[in-house]
Design a protein around this nucleic acid. Structure first.
Length: 815
DNA sequence: GGTCCTGCGTTACC
DNA sequence: ACCGGTAACGCAGGACC
């Protein structure tokens, strides 16, 4: 039979000692099906250059006889072939060794011990990746499949009988030229529990939200809405949950922090109730893996913890200070969680159950809507990197870069480099640091008419333009780029390597799809352009990452080196043409127009661009009406990485200031923001000063609400490990005493109260938000408000210190 | 008992 | 353990007078 098929989930299995794979996806009619397939399993023995032909033949014969006996499985070499390949950019002769089971690849590789064999490679590749490469059945891409349906067949031990859906044994696979739109069936879920610790208390309710589908399952309260279904106990509720998930048959089951909470909790409660959480398409239970970080896998359904993907692909664009569902959904959707405190409700012993149900449902509604919104990004990441959706939604950016490389090596006839071993990682992690970016020392002051330029994807374009990678590093000084690594000269060949070449294509695609998106504003094109951008930007970090297959610290150092050279050159160009440099950080230059025109500035930009190497490009970020740079708190120098700009539409761009730092109280941040606004919008420092004085008065009169004085600091490690005990650590201790749950990663909230003696430490005066006490007027004036506005007003020669004390009126002459 | 300096710790920028 | 270096700055803690 012939059908169209889009793969969603890949699951390898063994049968008679051989490797097979079940791929669950949908056909063109939207029916969920499973295809069964297999592929060659092999790895490489790379030969030394001088290996004589006769010996190679002999070696191949010997390899052909390798057999491994392990547990109940017998594994052997099926055949060998001699190929011309590339390894790290150099042509090599390599023996392709076909084996019966990939799980034994490592053991077989260990048996290949000939002096003519230089290296053994690709025995550490993941089977799913290998399968996708070999059979070209790409995730979330439509294919035409030819095969035979298994109908209660005894093949594979009667695999089709154990599955809820049709199984097809595949013969031919062909990617379709016309790609129809694919909209996944998404089901979102969320649970409410008695305790925070996994499995400790009961699950009180479970909500489910899909398309035209909403449900709250519970065994508590007296429901007054018909979407709430009351079961007799927790066990019945869990069974019903499984039943509904199976009936809905989603492609994607998604929760928010569900890897770390919802799914393991469900699993634990199922165990406690002695029932099976058989959500899998073959009625298997979720499988949890990956050491520290839990990940929950459900066969045949792609379980996605939305929070993890948002953290990977979105967090750098988000303003949210935490990745909590409430904050992220209100930023992405403009919609919030319901105002209801589940822990207080539980503690009270008499929760308003109907409010609780609504609250529970809303969490799934938000999760569902966000999943829909983020789907284009998941889709495009998956299609570009060609790893299963399950991995795409969880992998770190360095893993995404590496997977992209692995799935694109074929074009270069390259054999993949191996993953570093444990001891190698240890060495890499202890390596010396290298010099990073150049940061300009700004002069404090208020500036008018500012032009802001920046290099587009600078580090990525440096890697491409100077050909910086592991395989292009060379001892040969001729025809190469010379860079510096902590005083040592390092060279990179000018003959383009596969890593820079791949990156070049990524950048080109990013530029292409960015243009395409401008024309059509299709969200898919935006997601595609964004995915290429993120991969490009992660390429630099990847080469310096200790876990990378293509780790090359010299390349990472050279990237920073050539970036410094180019930014400094650009700065010099602007200076030589008579522009004053205001700021520069890594890849950007801000200049003051002064008595020159925008046109003149753009001419310099063009001149710079004409002389830039390779694909490097200096873009105009924009024009700004005004901008402010301040001094460091200590010393007379201008502070780096702290400035505020206002564009022609009166939109502020604030960097580094307390306004954007979450470890300052809201009042200080708001006041600073207002002051920056007044100064930048109207150039009115007098109004700003008046405003600050009003606030000071309010603080002194205790007219400020406590919630605006709460300071939030993250607990980054276990309480015991702190060498120096800051206020947030002291509060964390206090919380633990009060049996309030404290976890690593939590934002600890506190305010500073008046102490008995003035000299006591700040941590001794720190109190929990609901602890009774008077806020310390002096602390909030001197440690929060003053530091937030002092440096800004100083630019106008206003000494706020004196105003605070009320000793002397301002220094502004005309005040 | 106060001042100064240093290191820890967090968060930002790019 | 899951990308890099550069930088500001509060607070604690100890040296020093």
């Amino acid at each position: 039979m012939k059908l169209q098929f889009i793969p969603l989930d890949y699951e390898p299995f063994d049968y008679n000692g051989r490797n097979y794979i079940k791929v669950v996806g949908r056909n063109e009619k939207g029916k969920k099906i499973c295809i069964i397939d297999s592929c060659d399993v092999y790895f490489w023995a790379i030969l030394k250059e001088d290996a004589p032909e006769k010996r190679i033949k002999k070696i191949m014969e010997e390899i052909n006889n390798i057999k491994i006996k392990k547990d109940s499985r017998e594994s052997k070499v099926l055949k060998t072939e001699l190929h011309d390949k590339n390894y790290l950019g150099k042509p090599v002769k390599a023996i392709k060794i076909f084996i019966t089971n990939y799980k034994d690849a490592h053991d077989v590789a260990d048996k290949i011990d000939f002096k003519e064999v230089e290296k053994r490679r690709e025995y550490d590749l993941d089977f799913i990746a290998k399968y996708i490469l070999e059979r070209k059945l790409k995730p979330l891409v439509w294919h035409e499949i030819e095969g035979e349906i298994l109908n209660n067949s005894t093949e594979f031990g009667g695999i089709d009988a154990s599955m809820d859906i049709d199984c097809i044994k595949v013969e031919k696979i062909k990617e379709l030229k016309e790609q129809a739109k694919f909209t996944p069936k998404i089901l979102a879920y969320d649970i409410e529990t008695q305790e925070i610790e996994i499995g400790k208390g009961n699950i009180l309710m479970i909500s489910l939200v899909g398309e035209n589908f909403k449900k709250v399952l519970t065994w508590k309260g007296e429901p007054n809405e018909n979407y709430v279904e009351k079961l007799k106990d927790e066990e019945a509720m869990l069974k019903k949950f499984v039943k509904y998930v199976k009936k809905y048959a989603p492609d994607v089951l998604t929760g928010y922090f569900s890897d770390g909470f919802d799914l393991p909790y469900l699993r634990a409660r199922a165990e406690e109730n002695q029932i099976k959480l058989n959500l899998g398409i073959d009625n298997s239970q979720p499988v949890f893996s990956r050491g520290n970080m839990l990940t929950g896998k459900i066969r045949g359904i792609v379980h996605i913890d939305l929070m993890r993907f948002i953290k990977i692909a979105y967090s750098q664009y988000l303003q949210s200070e935490t990745l909590s569902l409430n904050e992220v959904s209100s930023e992405l959707l403009g919609e919030k969680k319901l105002d209801f405190n589940p822990w207080n409700a539980i503690k009270s012993g008499k929760p308003d159950w109907n409010e609780f149900f609504k609250y529970n449902l809303q969490d799934s509604v938000l999760t569902y809507k966000m999943a829909e919104k983020i789907w284009p990004d998941l889709l495009e990441f998956t299609r570009i990197i060609q790893e299963p959706l399950f991995n795409i939604s969880r992998d770190s950016m360095s893993a995404q870069v590496e997977n992209y490389i692995i799935h694109n090596l074929e074009k270069f006839n390259e054999i993949a480099e191996k993953r570093p071993h444990y001891d190698e990682i240890g060495i890499r992690r202890n390596r010396e640091k290298y010099v990073g970016a150049f940061v300009f020392q700004p002069t404090p002051g208020l500036y008018e008419d500012i032009c802001f330029f920046d290099f587009s994807s600078m580090y990525a374009s440096v890697i491409v333009s100077y050909n910086l990678s592991l395989s292009t590093k060379t001892e040969d000084k001729k025809d190469s780029y010379e860079s510096d690594f902590n005083g040592k000269k390092v060279y990179f060949s000018k003959k383009i390597g596969f890593f820079p070449e791949m990156l070049k294509q990524i950048i080109e695609k990013r530029r292409h799809f960015k243009e395409e998106h401008k024309k059509s504003s299709d969200p898919i094109l935006k997601a595609r352009s964004n995915a290429f951008k993120l991969i490009a930007n992660a390429a630099y970090g990847y080469q310096g990452f200790f876990g990378a297959r293509y780790y090359c610290l010299e390349a990472a150092a050279a990237t920073a080196y050539f970036a410094r050279e180019n930014i400094k050159k650009a700065i010099k160009e602007f200076e030589d043409e008579g522009f004053k440099i205001i700021n520069s950080d890594t890849d950007s230059v801000a200049i003051e127009l002064g008595n020159k025109t925008r046109k003149q500035a753009l001419e310099v930009q063009k001149k710079i661009n004409d002389n830039l190497p390779g694909i490097m490009e200096l873009d105009l970020e924009g024009f700004f009406k005004r901008g402010i740079w301040v001094t460091k708190r200590t010393g007379e120098f201008g502070a780096k990485k702290k400035y505020a700009l206002i564009d022609e539409n009166d939109k502020l761009k604030i960097r580094g200031f307390e306004t954007v730092r979450r470890d300052w109280c809201k009042l200080a941040r708001d006041v600073q923001n207002k002051v920056l606004n007044l100064i930048l919008k109207e150039g009115n420092e007098k109004r700003a000063l008046e405003y600050v004085k009003e606030i000071i008065k309010k603080i002194k009169n205790r007219e400020i609400e406590l919630k605006d004085l709460i300071i939030k600091t993250q607990l980054k490690k276990p309480i015991e490990e702190y060498k120096s005990e800051g206020p947030h650590v002291a509060i964390a201790k206090k919380m633990r005493e009060k049996e309030i749950p404290v976890d690593i990663g939590m934002l600890i909230e506190y305010y500073i109260s008046e102490g008995e003696s003035k000299k006591s430490l700040i941590r001794e005066r720190a109190k929990l938000p609901d602890e009774k006490g008077k806020y310390d007027i002096n602390y909030y004036l001197k440690n929060q408000i003053l530091p937030a506005v002092d440096n800004i007003l100083e630019v106008f020669k206003v000494n706020i210190n004196e105003i605070m004390d009320g000793k002397k009126q301002m220094c502004l002459g005309d005040f």
